[in-house]
Design a binder for these strands. Structure first.
Length: 191
DNA sequence: AACAACCTCAACCGCATCAGA
DNA sequence: GTCTGATGCGGTTGAGGTTGT
């Protein structure tokens, strides 16, 4: 459930000191029983906050920043296939978190896709750059809404998207190698 | 230089699901 | 079978930084 609102440190950025305490307690007790961890660390944070901090920031092998072209390509394909299942997508990208991918999608990729769509529409209408930006971000929001209402258990859509997902014609060799590794990772991804 | 608009990302929230008593 | 607490997930918010006017 949600953190108890009073007395807990909500909304504030984590300090290095808090990170250190949390990491120490997790080292001893392991990354489970987050309520207990929060208490033992003596932090005014709820268990959920501690878990999130660990998963998104403190966990070993976290990659930070600079999503590579290959990773971006994979995110695009996986999103096409899976929709907004960020944790599933993150599971295919070692060192990346669902939160990071979700943020990256919302701030970079959804915009890119919309730009491509607008170009392919061949619209002749011109807007000021500011108006255009606003329009793009609003459209992105609309699309996310639509996605959520439609991704359900729609197997037919997934089957349809699989063709696109595995269409690697025209890819450069490094991307193909990346995809090959990805497919080796989990043979159980596909039905 | 000052202000407004916009962007990014860490963190929170609410709900769903899981697991154990 | 049911209740309850823990965990996981996706959506949303807001602070701080950047860019445009």
């Amino acid at each position: 459930m949600a953190c108890v609102k009073k007395e807990l440190n909500r909304g504030g950025a984590w300090t290095a000191e808090e990170d250190k305490k949390l990491a120490e307690v997790i080292e001893i007790h392991g990354p489970k029983r987050w309520k207990t961890i929060a208490a033992k660390a003596g932090l005014n944070r709820c268990g959920k906050s501690c878990r999130l901090r660990w998963l998104n920031y403190l966990r070993p092998n976290i990659k930070r920043g600079n999503i590579s072209d290959q990773e971006e390509d994979l995110i695009l394909r996986l999103h096409k296939l899976l929709g907004n299942r960020w944790s599933l997508i993150a599971g295919r990208l070692p060192g990346r978190t669902d939160n990071e991918i979700k943020n990256y999608w919302n701030s970079h990729l959804s915009k890119k896709i919309n730009q491509r769509e607008e170009q392919s529409e061949g619209s002749t209408r011109e807007f000021s750059s500011k108006t255009k930006k606003r329009r793009i971000s609003e459209k992105a929001k609309e699309e996310v809404k639509e996605e959520n209402t439609s991704h359900g258990d729609d197997d037919s859509k997934i089957k349809f998207d699989l063709d696109d997902f595995f269409d690697f014609s025209g890819e450069n060799p490094s991307t193909l190698e990346w995809v090959r590794k990805f497919l080796e990772l989990d043979e159980g991804l596909l039905p």
